[in-house]
Write a protein that binds this DNA or RNA. Sequence first.
DNA 1: CCTACCGATCGGTAGG
DNA 2: CCTACCGATCGGTAGG
Lengths: 220, 220
Amino acid sequence: MSLRHQSVDAWPTRDRILYEASRLIAARGFHGATTRDIAEGVGIRQPSVFNHFASKQDILAELMVFDLTVPAERAEQLSFETVSPASRLYRYAAWDLRWYQEMPFDLRGMQEDLVNMPGMEEFQQALERWTKAIGRILDQGLAAGEFRADAAPFVPAILDTLSWEFVRSSHHHADDATRLNTDDGAAFVLRGLLVNPDDLEAVIGEVAQTGGRPGGGGTS
Amino acid sequence: MSLRHQSVDAWPTRDRILYEASRLIAARGFHGATTRDIAEGVGIRQPSVFNHFASKQDILAELMVFDLTVPAERAEQLSFETVSPASRLYRYAAWDLRWYQEMPFDLRGMQEDLVNMPGMEEFQQALERWTKAIGRILDQGLAAGEFRADAAPFVPAILDTLSWEFVRSSHHHADDATRLNTDDGAAFVLRGLLVNPDDLEAVIGEVAQTGGRPGGGGTS
DNA sequence: CCTACCGATCGGTAGG
DNA sequence: CCTACCGATCGGTAGG
């Protein structure tokens, strides 16, 4: 079912365009990734790309759904739940890192500034919603005395980077043995953030009790 | 003396080109930042840019010295010193974050992939030297039992991000009051990495004893 | 530091 | 999904 479980060559052309575009945008940036390069990677001629997407920007927009819209939705869900802030942040981080690890596309080129392009307002708002949702969880944790005030400002940027790191690792080591562990990544963030790092075990336990599953739909 | 202490308008044209280029590359990527935009920001005509730099890529190269060559040198220095690995990593992190905070240019557009462009081999090597030097300190800390094996793999990427975060904060809040604290950033990394986070105070103390100054030359 | 200009390459269209 | 093609824009040069 999932694209991840098939060889890229077996994907529909439309998905292969998304895949090649994501790799090239990650490698050279949006403006450096040309429609000719994308087409060449897919094995078609450049104008044929426009039979699947109305514009180059539409390819970007579809990739941004995976990078911004879906994570924003998940962060908002968790920001309104009732378990402890620490537990919710851990759950979000673990979900986020898994999301990027299992992502078939290479989203490292989806830089923040791209949402400022005309026509990308939808994703500008998704980014804002994500930032606010994470900010809510952080504020709740600060108010509850769970989080360190001198560490909280770094958390959004660190979640971002760890996401990229898991994309990178999933594209470089295909075998499960050398893969980075998503729970270790989430634990790293929490250890730096918690006033009492020794509470981490309990926080993780709380997650298991409320039955949080990494869940979320397919990728295509 | 330092560019940071003068208004941008008072800088020599060459430095203003570097400044505008750094901002545009951060905002749109190297290929999205055109020489016409750079010139417009400086207040000169597009061909005049080439009176100061032989090519657009030469502008990039000069910015990369600040982003890669200088930090690589500092990391290598520290990787061969004799104080504890934890203390050296803390010192590197604190130096690195200060370096980016005081940097007059916006280096957030200096993505890793740019070093793969033809002619940028020098910076590909600088990046490699940086990675190896940080890796050496991490390996020494793991061997000494100071660092957690499940946290060490995340450290290089997190140093990277925190650097960008300090660039961003220094470009957004000019006043010292709301500025992010570089020591807090370094402490965040160490708390996530140390087997015994309570040792952090001692690690910071060790730094003071060996008399490590943030030091390093000017910026221009 | 300017005006004038050029070859190459870009995203996208026409028409099958 | 292709060939043929186009207007716009790119980095860079000539010559003052």
